[in-house]
């Protein structure tokens, strides 16, 4: 029984998402702002700096804005997912979690329901960034037919989805173990900064010191960005003088890495929820 119980949790979380108008509005506008201000400012700088660099012959040249738009998709997915579990903390503090914990609903359904709603929110944001990006001159899906572009976008969503599940699981595991929202805020900041900077989201990692390069390989964000760029920009391109080649094998490794990460964090969340005492 209870095969679709997680849909109940999903339904309520989405209901709240559309009902909190300010939250809804800010979560939709914020990624566009990132792209508009940070993206355009940075891309102006990088274009100036890289103007004198010789282009690698025979490789498609991609503007920095396009390059970093993929990074903004990845970062937005990261933040939305990391905050995805905070609802569990609020439910715990306001007593609402008791209703669920005292019901026959198996606890993994809470984890899955919350993760799916976090994933949905990420998808909506990815869609907005992509649409807004295309509008301001991001060169996604170069020369693709509409059909190919849709398929490529589904590929982007696949990577974002698996990545998002992993981080909402992680966030839920932390949230159910904590007492106060302030604590979660602190932990999220602590987690997100290194994830953010030790990745290829905003700049190439080829110039990193070797240790950071190693670390960035173990960073799920790097693998997400790989996937997003593969689908949205292409398997072989150059940006500010650096060549990016992603083979189908590299893509499979990245997807495998993200899947393993999601499984591991699901296990962690499962354990934390079965240990949790909510009164």
């Amino acid at each position: 029984m209870n095969g679709t119980g997680f849909l109940t949790i999903y339904w309520r979380d989405m209901l709240r998402f559309v009902r909190f108008k300010t939250l809804l509005f800010s979560s939709l506008v914020q990624p566009a702002l990132w792209l508009a201000f940070f993206g355009i400012a940075m891309s102006a700088n990088f274009s100036r700096l890289s103007a004198g660099l010789p282009a690698i012959p025979g490789v498609t040249v991609v503007g920095y804005l396009t390059f970093m738009a993929a990074g903004v998709i990845a970062l937005t997915t990261l933040f939305t997912s990391l905050f995805g579990g905070i609802v569990i903390l609020f439910d715990k503090n306001w007593g609402m979690m008791r209703e669920v914990m005292a019901s026959p609903l198996p606890r993994e359904h809470i984890i899955i329901g919350i993760a799916l709603s976090g994933m949905t929110k990420s998808f909506i944001q990815v869609l907005i960034i992509t649409a807004f990006g295309l509008l301001i001159g991001v060169g996604f899906f170069p020369g693709y037919s509409p059909g190919q572009a849709v398929l490529a976008f589904l590929g982007v969503l696949l990577f974002c989805g698996v990545f998002s599940l992993g981080f909402v699981f992680l966030s839920s595991a932390i949230a159910v173990s904590l007492e106060s929202p302030e604590g979660l805020q602190g932990i999220i900041t602590l987690l997100s900064l290194p994830l953010f900077f030790v990745s290829n989201a905003l700049y190439p990692i080829s110039a990193f010191p070797p240790v950071l390069q190693e670390l960035s390989w173990g960073n799920p964000l790097t693998h997400l960005v790989n996937g997003v760029r593969y689908f949205a920009i292409g398997p072989d391109f150059q940006v500010i003088g650096v060549r990016y080649v992603t083979s189908p094998e590299d893509l499979a490794v990245s997807l495998g890495f993200l899947s393993a990460f999601a499984l591991a964090t699901f296990g962690l969340a499962w354990w934390r929820f079965h240990e949790a005492v909510v009164t």
Binding site: R12, L15, W94, G95, A102, S103
Partner: peptide, 26 residues
Amino acid sequence: IVFQEVTLDRDMTCREILDFHGRLYR
């Protein structure tokens, strides 16, 4: 169960509160 403290979601309607509870119990 009726808990000692109020455990209602402030942003749901009365109908939704009951519906959600019914869904939890399939």
